[in-house]
């Protein structure tokens, strides 16, 4: 019953609220309020994830593992403060997703963004960052089920993909911040000018994934075997 209700709410949000917001943006506001609309959509799109977590009544150990992984990526982000873009956040969210599933992956990514911005300052970019890192964790979780993420090549490909995805996502926000409107030309300009960053994201993701994926998986497995956390 619980599960069903949250599924219904999620479906209502995805199929009714988000299209409505888009429609309102295009028709009522004359296609001009991109900034506002995009943030609204991002927030709406994140609600189902939080809702299902909330309604599932997770056990203390699940809560703790998500909090720990988020805090680790925030600490890691601070550790690499001198190297812009070279951060372990996406990799850690993805690895959490591989081992603990899509929901845990999404939450780790999203909470990492929110908490690290509590230290570095919130801004209109917060929802975008939450959503993008969350999505990387989410997709990681979906891929983790297949079991192919134990291998090197899928890890490398995923790292590159995650870097590009993050860049594409954040550039939507960047474009609208700089131009106020979203136009394809401006978006392409933004994407091309962000290529160096995209490369740094992708390379850092690949490095972090290759080095951290196995140890973190083993550590989570150890905890699971020793204390039976996720049974």
């Amino acid at each position: 019953m619980q599960k069903r209700l949250s599924l219904i709410i999620s479906l209502v949000i995805i199929f009714i609220f988000i299209p409505l917001t888009l429609y309102a943006g295009i028709v009522l506001f004359n296609d001009r309020k991109y900034y506002f609309i995009s943030i609204m959509i991002i927030i709406l799109a994140s609600i189902p994830f939080f809702l299902s977590f909330e309604r599932r009544k997770p056990q203390p150990r699940e809560i703790l593992i998500i909090a720990v992984m988020s805090a680790i990526s925030v600490t890691g982000r601070a550790l690499f403060v001198i190297t812009p873009g070279f951060k372990p956040v996406a990799a850690i969210a993805a690895i959490t997703g591989f081992s603990l599933g899509a929901e845990a992956g999404f939450l780790t990514g999203a909470i990492s963004a929110l908490v690290s911005n509590m230290f570095f300052g919130q801004g209109p970019w917060t929802p975008f960052q939450m959503f993008m890192w969350g999505m990387i964790g989410f997709i990681g979780g979906l891929l983790g089920r297949t079991g192919i993420m134990h291998k090197k090549i899928p890890l490398i490909l995923f790292g590159i993909f995650a870097g590009i995805l993050f860049s594409f996502g954040m550039d939507i926000w960047g474009t609208m911040s700089l131009y106020g409107v979203f136009s394809m030309e401006a978006y392409i300009v933004a994407l091309t000018s962000a290529v160096p960053f995209t490369i740094v994201y992708a390379v850092s993701n690949v490095i972090f994934l290759l080095i951290l994926a196995r140890p973190i998986r083993e550590k989570l497995e150890r905890i699971n075997n020793k204390y039976g956390t996720f049974q």
Binding site: I63, L64, I66, A67, V68, S70, A71, V74, T75, L107, I111, L114, V115, M118, F119
Partner: peptide, 9 residues
């Protein structure tokens, strides 16, 4: 979860 995370950082 947020509160725990904030305490851990």
């Amino acid at each position: 979860t947020l509160s725990i995370s904030l305490r851990l950082v």
